[in-house]
Design a protein around this nucleic acid. Structure first.
Lengths: 253, 253
DNA sequence: CCAATCGTTCCGAGATACAGAACGGACATA
DNA sequence: TATGTCCGTTCTGTATCTCGGAACGATTGG
């Protein structure tokens, strides 16, 4: 679905591109933005002041940046998701049990999107935030979902060039496919420092009654603690069982 | 500041109104939206498919709803805030100490906006989510910030009709002003079931070196636990001291 | 089987977005 | 103080785009 709108609203596209640019630049002045987007100063000014009126951007002193309205809408979107409501308490208790960082993610447009996280008492400090989008192929969360996506979707995702984040990242589609088979076999996925040096994760998918994936949960921790018996049995056991509980609660309501 | 853009981009306004409506309706079909906003079906369709292309809305089966892109942007906005970074660990440990629900909020355009929350082991389950906007006058968070806002801002906020959420809500501007003086006096604010029956909160403001408010933190709990010595001394003590730590860390960096 | 309602496509006239010029303020340099 | 530069903002005309309304095929229900 290379989803191209047949009759796009070009003005809206310009606004959205302005928002994207503002996200990248963190904050910027009118002229700066006008250079990045292909628009004149006056046009950028008009767009920004319209966005400001609706609180989508904030003007602080002399620079514009994205406003808190996005946090509002984002929270609203997450709150509406059944998966989030059902999974949240389980995530919470999994974090307490393991003392590590626990994550909830969904697949969206071929990306792995973090929905929620809960930090156990020893949790590593990561850059992951709710809403963050990462590639599917180098996170345990992504791979666990990929393993249960319909073939045509997997193909489309693995056809894109696979980026490497660390020296352990897997960039060969065939190797990923082998892993996906293993994941289906044993029920959970591993990330062995593929996204971040020193970080290992264990993830299990959450499936619907019709076998389709609706999300995944994971436990992330430093290599020093994620090894041996704990990595091979204890954590996978806890993650799988939590995923199972969520799955049951989702399909029975 | 009734911030009216001088030369608004009307097309963008229509898009934003569509987003607002989509938030209200939770999810809706093309014709349904066309009725709510004053636009024809074709125009709504064009806007929606443009938004969908950028992942701002999702089309599920036969209804449109807001997409996860907002979560991404919202998380990004929050992550950029120094207050959030500095306050987060303090909020976390305050939640552990009190076992209750702890909140971080800022003031934005005359509203109280929740930025983050951490749940202690006994935390009440509330509808508050990151990004939620509430009135300033019937939350402890809001009042603690209001108490340190410049007079012209206070006036503008209290000039608007004050809504009541419960039978304890205060809707008389003069009574609020008396409370604000008390809050300045003792350093923290109380919400005695003013926003929600059965819920009491204690909040303390976080101020900049120039005395301006940059946010507030609060502890919320059920009336059954928030009373007597704990409500009058223990909790206020903990909240104020956490706010103080945050304040120091903010101004020294 | 027809009637109603849906989403989508198409088109042209009326609306409007926007480049570019012009302006005024802020700041630096001389 | 005078002069130059860069900023954000306002203004205006026209080339462009938006959007109502009509038309169409697909669904649904009576």
């Amino acid at each position: 679905m290379g989803n191209h709108a047949k009759h796009p609203v070009k003005t809206t596209m310009k606004t959205l591109e302005l928002i994207d640019t503002l996200k990248e630049l963190e904050s910027a002045r009118v002229s700066e933005l006008a250079d990045h987007v292909e628009m004149g100063k006056s046009a950028v000014h008009n767009h920004l002041s319209t966005l400001e009126e609706y609180e989508y951007v904030t003007k602080s002193e002399e620079e514009y940046s994205l406003g808190l309205r996005f946090l509002d809408l984002g929270g609203h979107v997450r709150n509406r998701m059944k998966l989030y409501k059902v999974a949240e308490p389980e995530i919470e208790s999994l974090a307490t049990e393991t003392s590590e960082l626990v994550n909830l993610a969904v697949e969206d447009h071929g990306h792995c999107v973090y929905l929620y996280r809960s930090k156990g008492t020893q949790a590593v400090k990561l850059d992951t935030y709710s809403g963050l989008r990462t590639a599917m192929h180098n996170t345990a969360l992504g791979k666990s979902m990929l393993a249960h996506l319909p073939e045509y979707r997997v193909e489309k995702i693995l056809d894109e060039p696979l980026t490497a984040e660390t020296s352990n990242s897997i960039t060969d589609p065939e190797e990923i496919r082998t892993q996906l088979a293993e994941i289906r076999e044993r029920g959970y996925a591993l990330d062995n420092e593929e996204r971040l040096e020193g970080l290992r994760c264990v993830a299990a998918p959450i499936q619907n009654s019709d076998e389709s994936v609706i999300g995944a949960i994971s436990v992330s921790g430093p290599t020093s603690r994620m090894k041996g018996e704990r990595l091979e049995n204890e954590i996978p056991e806890l993650v799988s069982s939590a995923a199972n509980v969520i799955q049951l609660n989702i399909t029975h309501s």
